[in-house]
């Protein structure tokens, strides 16, 4: 049996993943390589921030302590955030953003497909919606991998560098700590370790098609679920939380 505290912690992780990635994507507004793409990136950002609101809202409901979705986004410090590190890395250039998005989309689609079957009805419902969004996200990011990989020498090199710089953060996607195992056993969460072989197969196929090389597994950085982040997260939070910190306890 899982208890309330475990469920809350589990849902909060998913909220953090969504918010942090959504925030990074939102930084593309007015910065896209052309107007249509500017809009598409902020649209995906909106999906993720919307997802964060659902997970945080559910977290608050489980906590039943007067917290709201905003308590989790705005009133916690770096060490309290439990997102996977890949989501918080600065947006980088367009190649970096699309490489991350593709790697994460492949993972998220498979993840949400499983989470749809969760015994927890709220999580299943959120996953239902997220799965539909991820189908579209993956179609989009895959086509960017192909175009940039097999485009010009410059786009190929930029994308290869991005994949290389991201690769060591992908291992964490498939790590199972005690909580993940408990949640998976209870059919509430997802056995992420079991998703890895198919993820590798898909990613390898797409990268090869895009004339890119799958990097060697020679470095790994993890720690997000324990609140051990990159230094970039603190800066993101100081930006995001500015108003709530400067004028605490107000309605906006």
């Amino acid at each position: 049996m899982i208890d309330k505290q475990q469920l809350k912690e589990f849902v909060l992780r998913l909220g953090d993943d969504s918010l942090v990635l959504g925030h990074r994507l939102s930084q593309w507004s007015s910065n896209g390589p052309f107007l249509e793409e500017d809009l598409a990136l902020t649209n995906v950002a909106l999906d993720y921030v919307g997802r964060a609101r659902m997970f945080y809202g559910y977290t608050a409901e489980i906590a039943a302590d007067g917290s709201t979705e905003d308590s989790y986004a705005y009133n916690r410090d770096c060490r309290d955030f439990t997102n996977l590190l890949i989501h918080e890395l600065p947006r980088g250039d367009f190649a970096f953003t699309m490489a991350r998005q593709y790697l994460v989309d492949e993972f998220n689609l498979a993840y949400m497909e499983r989470l749809k079957l969760s015994r927890d009805k709220t999580l299943a419902a959120i996953a239902e919606k997220a799965y539909k969004e991820d189908l579209y996200h993956l179609r989009r990011s895959t086509s960017w991998i192909l175009r940039l990989g097999d485009g010009t020498t410059e786009s190929h090199d930029r994308l290869q560098n991005a994949i290389d710089d991201l690769w060591g953060y992908t291992t964490e996607l498939f790590e199972m700590d005690e909580l993940d195992q408990e949640m998976s056993k209870a059919n509430v969460g997802v056995d992420v370790a079991s998703l890895q072989p198919e993820w590798i197969r898909q990613v390898t196929a797409t990268l090869s098609k895009a004339t890119l090389t799958v990097p060697a597994d020679d470095w790994v950085v993890t720690g997000g679920r324990k609140g051990i982040h990159t230094e970039a997260l603190g800066h993101m939070l100081s930006d995001m939380q500015f108003l709530q910190r400067a004028y605490p306890g107000q309605q906006w």
């Binding site: 930084q27 902020t42 909106l46 921030v49 609101r53 945080y56 905003d70 705005y74 108003l243 906006w252």
Partner: peptide, 23 residues
């Protein structure tokens, strides 16, 4: 102000609005 919107609700509204303007 997108990255500094004071609540998640405001952030979503502003994201959608800025997108509309681009549209």
């Amino acid at each position: 102000w997108l990255t500094r919107a004071p609540t998640l609700h405001r952030k979503c509204i502003l994201l959608a609005k800025v997108q509309d303007e681009g549209g």
